[in-house]
């Protein structure tokens, strides 16, 4: 464990806390893409298949349970909670995310470390996580005005993988045979998707103005 990875995990946790706060405090999920949240459930279930077979540390197991539990809770809330599901902007959340699932799975069948069930699903979860934010970013562009909590949620979500890139650079230089090219390349693509969002987020923060994404 290094400071970059710990900062990344904490930033990821903060993004989930901000989203849960928004939904529970405002009883609203307006501006949130249900498709992105569903993709994250698939990402965590596919990545943490070893949850009960490989024990790495208490921290690792607890965080996996938190990520799986919170992503399921958010999807449940947006689909079943009477007050919240009414605020879901279904007509704005139109990204065909099934293609992202299919494409990531096909890519995992082609590009993986070992052709085993667990490695294929791990690579699948890495590729899917890289594109999972797309429905949310498209929805933000469509909805134009972004409320503060939603903007902060996306910001922390983008920042977490940027910390992980620093973690991979650090491990590359400190651990002799550290090789994680699948996660590195995918993490770079993932963080690149946030580039324009980070730009507009910074502009809005500098001008102390509301976050406006160009349609």
């Amino acid at each position: 464990m290094n400071i970059f990875r710990f900062a990344g995990d904490m930033t990821h946790l903060i993004s989930i806390v901000v989203l849960l706060l928004k939904i529970y405090a405002t009883k609203s999920c307006s501006g949130i893409s249900l498709k992105t949240q569903e993709l994250y459930v698939i990402v965590f279930l596919a990545r943490y298949l070893d949850l009960f077979t490989d024990f790495i540390s208490v921290y690792n197991t607890v965080m996996k349970l938190v990520f799986i539990g919170s992503s399921l809770a958010i999807v449940w809330c947006m689909r079943m909670h009477r007050a919240v599901k009414r605020t879901y902007d279904k007509e704005l959340d139109t990204f065909r995310h099934y293609f992202l699932v299919l494409g990531s799975f096909v890519l995992a069948l082609l590009l993986h470390e070992k052709f085993t069930f667990q490695e294929i699903f791990w690579a699948f979860s890495i590729y899917l996580e890289a594109v999972a934010i797309l429905p949310q970013l498209v929805m933000l562009q469509r909805s134009g005005n972004v409320d503060n909590l939603t903007g902060q949620y996306v910001f922390f979500l983008g920042a977490y993988r940027a910390f992980y890139i620093l973690n991979w650079i650090y491990r590359f230089f400190t651990e002799p045979h550290f090789s994680r090219w699948i996660a590195c390349l995918s993490g770079l693509v993932q963080t690149a998707f946030y580039a324009d969002f980070f730009y507009y987020y910074f502009i809005s923060w500098k001008n102390n103005a509301k976050l406006q994404l160009p349609a």
Partner: peptide, 10 residues
């Protein structure tokens, strides 16, 4: 093995 140690990340 290599792949074992990289799977310690979330």
């Amino acid at each position: 093995s290599i792949s074992a140690d990289v799977k310690d990340e979330l």
